[in-house]
Design a protein around this nucleic acid. Structure first.
Length: 304
DNA sequence: CGTTATGCAACTGAATCTTC
DNA sequence: GAAGATTCAGTTGCATAACG
């Protein structure tokens, strides 16, 4: 039994399709078929049920897969640990986020301090972040809504900053006279919004759902600067967090608090418990916590 | 027709043998 | 003992059979 066989097995178990697995693994389908047959022969039990021209992981296969996953997980951990020990400075940290507003500023400041660390960042929904962490395909998740329940035992999640969502209004808008606005008063207003998948969109959708309406989104953009410009041009209202204004001083817009209680939330940092964290990832985690601590302090001072 | 399994030839790499 | 040749087991890809 060797790692190639286990790698092949893992792929077929995931896809439950021999031809697709062969394509993904870049080997000929017959070779893959033969390799798995030999593995099954060696284990003394079939790992897949052949139903007609379909193959399906059976109970032996499921049991074996959980052990194979552990083997690969151990090897990955070992590689990372050795990489640390040999002081390899080419560390890469992978992240999945559902809010990217502060990422350029955060990463710029981190890379200024740790220029040898590289990043791989993807945008993901809250539930995708949870899956990616569980599969160890990312080191950290950053989300504007909690990704797991507190009793979840695989993922560790900590709130790193409290944020309040405000309404951004165009200059001269009638509602600017008010000190605060209940959501029921803006049911018919047009909105500028982040696309689905972004945290701010999740927050906006949740707020509107709780207030009992679907927002009339006239423009979607994933660029905060564009959203603010559209609002300034009077094309609609937008839900935004003042954090964005702290990070980019060029952005100036009138904000009105929302009366509904649900508009306050936290940005959360999450990672997989019991996983070996390299020096680079530990440095990053500490940096993120401090970054948001400073940002919150700054936000608080401005509000005084 | 699409998918998996099988026969066969070619290739690969490790072990062993031969030659110098 | 080192370098090249040979052997052999295991793996791979191509062609194709079997199957639904």
């Amino acid at each position: 039994m060797d790692l190639i066989q286990l790698q092949y097995f893992k792929t077929i178990a995931r896809l439950e399709h021999m031809t697709q697995a062969a394509e993904e693994l870049r080997v000929a389908q017959p070779s893959l078929s033969r390799t798995i047959s030999k593995l099954e022969e060696e284990l003394g039990t079939p790992l897949f049920d052949r139903v007609g021209r379909r193959i399906k992981l059976n109970s032996f296969g499921e049991s074996f897969l959980s052990h194979v996953d552990k083997v690969f997980s151990e090897l990955t951990e070992a590689k990372r640990e050795l990489s640390d020990l040999s002081d390899i400075k080419e560390s890469t940290i992978s992240l999945a986020v559902n809010t990217s507003i502060f990422m350029p500023d955060l990463l710029k400041k981190f890379i200024d301090q740790y220029p040898y660390i590289k990043f791989h960042q993807i945008l993901a929904t809250t539930s995708n972040i949870q899956n990616l962490l569980e599969d160890e395909r990312i080191d950290f998740g950053i989300s504007v809504t909690p990704i797991v329940s507190p009793e979840h035992h695989i993922i560790q999640e900590i709130p790193i900053i409290t944020v309040e969502t405000f309404l951004a209004l165009p200059p001269g808008h009638a509602l600017l006279e008010r000190n605060s606005i209940p959501l029921r008063d803006i049911v018919t207003e047009p909105f500028i919004s982040m696309p689905i998948g972004y945290g701010l969109r999740e927050i906006a959708d949740n707020l509107c759902n709780q207030a009992g309406f679907n927002p009339n989104i006239v423009i979607e953009s994933n660029e905060p600067l564009s959203i603010i410009r559209y609002v300034k041009y009077g094309l609609g209202l937008a839900f935004i967090t003042p954090l964005i204004l702290e990070i980019d001083p060029k952005l100036v817009i009138d904000l009105i608090p929302i009366e509904d209680a649900a508009c306050k939330g936290t940005i959360n940092l999450s990672w997989k418990k019991d996983r070996y964290l390299s020096k680079a990832t530990l440095q990053f985690r500490d940096f993120v916590i401090k970054y948001f601590h400073d940002l919150e302090k700054c936000q608080f001072e401005h509000s005084l």
